[in-house]
């Protein structure tokens, strides 16, 4: 137990010190770390829907988009609105949550694979609307996107400027890092608490056998809706942070491939298992950069030119990873302990 405590303290210290170390190497790496955290956050949000409740959602990026656009519209010169973060972030989460419920209510009685296609269609519809709501009345500014979005500002603390605390310079990205870390801890806590809660167990029951769950007295429809709405809210929060960090949003950032990428993180890591999902998200964030720095030079050395672009290779690896995971480790690389138990029982039976 005490060894575990020491471990936790060490990890916490390492996480706290990370941006300061990274800043020494280059602030760009802090930005990369921030995006990685954002994607872990997103995949944990999706984990509630896909991993726990077993609702295959191919359009998760729609909620991320709703959150991002909410922030962009309420805190930018576009409508000349500059609301504070404590107003926008909840509004964004709320909008995303409503969008989730709106999508969920009519479609949740559909079977899993139909639901997947409908969510996919929904994700595309949201993107197409964002891309086209610039005429005849300009709401989203269309494909040009929204620029000069306000960053996060808490009281007098502007998260874009560099500040000096305790003799250490904290750059803008480094400050965002701590906010994102805080949010990440929150979503991890929610995920962990849910896992063993009444609702969490109801979700698992639905995932495994909906009819049996219904027979056991679970109000499947409401419980599923709750999963959808909750996952969507987290997507909305992540979107808001994305808009604040980047200062620019456009529909291009919310394409279907983003949804698939987030889904791949959840599936590959281990649906339902928080630590598995985190590992999956880190792995998939890490692979492309790894390929970038190894494949390119290696090919140039061997063939004298670039034969396969790392970006293409990355997609091939993603696709193959999805196929192979389903084939050989359908519960993911780090499956939920519950799954493990089930598999062992299966062998015994």
């Amino acid at each position: 137990m005490s060894r575990k405590t020491i471990g936790i303290v060490l990890v916490a210290l390492a996480l706290l010190a990370l941006p300061l170390v990274l800043t020494q190497v280059g602030t760009a790496w802090v930005r990369i770390a921030n995006l990685a955290i954002l994607f872990i956050f997103l995949s944990l949000g999706l984990n509630i829907v896909v991993g726990m409740a077993g609702l295959l959602d191919f359009g998760y990026v729609a909620f991320y988009a709703v959150g991002a656009y909410t922030w962009a519209l309420l805190a930018s010169p576009h409508f000349n609105l500059h609301l504070p973060f404590w107003a926008i972030l909840p509004i964004g989460a709320l909008f995303a949550c409503v969008a989730g419920a709106l999508l969920g209510a009519p479609t949740l009685r559909l079977r899993g694979d139909y639901l997947a296609i409908v969510t996919l269609g929904f994700g595309e519809i949201v993107r197409i609307f964002m891309n086209n709501l610039s005429a005849p009345f300009n709401v989203t500014n269309g494909p040009k996107g929204i620029t000069r979005i306000d960053g996060l500002a808490v009281g007098g603390l502007d998260f874009r400027a560099t500040d000096r605390f305790l003799g250490i310079d904290f750059t803008g990205p480094a400050k965002y890092y701590y906010v994102l870390l805080l949010l990440l801890l929150f979503v991890i806590a929610v995920n962990l608490r849910l896992q063993n809660s009444r609702i969490g167990r109801a979700w698992v029951a639905i995932r495994e056998d909906e009819i049996a769950a219904k027979a056991a007295g679970i109000d499947t429809r409401n419980v599923k809706l709750l999963a959808f709405a909750m996952g969507a809210s987290f997507g909305g929060i992540a979107g808001g942070m994305f808009a604040a960090m980047q200062g620019f949003v456009s529909p291009e950032s919310f394409v279907l491939h983003e949804s698939i990428m987030i889904l791949a993180m959840v599936v590959l890591g281990g649906m339902g298992n928080v630590w598995g999902v985190i590992a999956g998200a880190l792995l998939l964030s890490f692979v492309p950069e790894f390929l970038r720095y190894t494949v390119e030079p290696a090919q140039k050395m061997l063939f004298g030119r670039l034969l396969v672009e790392p970006e293409v290779l990355r997609m091939l690896v993603f696709g193959a990873a999805l196929v192979l995971t389903m084939r050989f480790r359908p519960a993911g690389l780090w499956p939920e302990s519950w799954h493990k138990r089930e598999m062992r029982e299966g062998e015994a039976a």
Partner: peptide, 28 residues
């Protein structure tokens, strides 16, 4: 075929994976 008795969602994810693989093979 290997997934015929797997949970419903598994082949769907596989299908998405195959779709990505085929697209990028064609690109190559």
């Amino acid at each position: 075929r290997p997934l015929r008795h797997a949970p419903r969602l598994a082949p769907l994810i596989t299908a998405i994976g195959m779709s990505i693989v085929l697209q990028h093979l064609a690109l190559l």
